[in-house]
Design a protein around this nucleic acid. Structure first.
Length: 183
DNA sequence: AAGAAGATTCGCT
DNA sequence: GCGAATCTTCTTA
């Protein structure tokens, strides 16, 4: 949960043969230990094992047979928890992102978790990567003034729906969702 | 062994 | 606004 707040304003960087792409993270959700809505809730499986790594590793899952979503593992080794990256503001490599997201306008390139992963060409191939070390996918610490952060209930979850574990940059137009709850 | 639901998005009505 | 796409895991038989 602290990590989810900290990541607002940080950057997720993708380096691959098509060049460098970077997004400013503007929206996250925390999935805690003992959280019935978390993929790690029912224990470790082949799909979610990355959530049980120590903090800072990529957990990528395939959802609804169509999209990938990118998370950052959040708790000590052996404890299942993570932060879902829900939306980002394109910083660099915008042309490459547009190539990966045909038809999307700038504001929609990474506005939503499935879109964010698609804009960066993140798939299960990047699952388990250390995001705190140099590599094809990594995190850059927040820079500049601390953003104004809002919180709300998580989007799309039915379990533990009352918990306010979604965080977003209040002043960003790149935040996902038709609504901004608890402004 | 089979069916349902889920941390989503897009296209058509 | 609704349905499709079709993976992983859980539930029920």
């Amino acid at each position: 949960m602290d990590l989810a707040r900290f990541l607002i304003g940080a950057a997720i960087v993708r380096d691959d043969p098509s060049g460098r792409r970077a997004l400013r993270i503007v929206e996250t959700e925390a999935y805690l230990p003992g959280d019935a809505a978390a993929h790690s809730y029912r224990g470790e499986t082949p799909r979610n094992r990355s959530l049980f790594l120590r903090p800072g590793y990529a957990y990528v899952y395939f959802i609804y047979g169509t999209w990938f979503c990118l998370n950052v593992s959040a708790e000590a080794a052996g404890v299942g928890a993570g932060v879902l990256l829900r939306a980002g503001e394109p910083l660099t490599g915008i042309a490459a992102m547009e190539r990966s997201r045909p038809g999307a306008v700038l504001r929609d390139l990474a506005r939503g978790p499935g879109r964010l992963a698609a804009a960066l060409d993140v798939t299960r191939a990047q699952d388990g990567l250390d995001l705190c070390a140099p590599g094809p996918l990594w995190l850059a610490a927040p820079r500049g003034a601390a953003p104004r952060i809002g919180k709300s209930v998580r989007i799309g979850v039915t379990l533990e729906k009352h918990r306010e574990l979604r965080f977003y940059e209040r002043d960003s137009r790149f935040v996902s969702g038709p609504r901004r709850i608890n402004l």
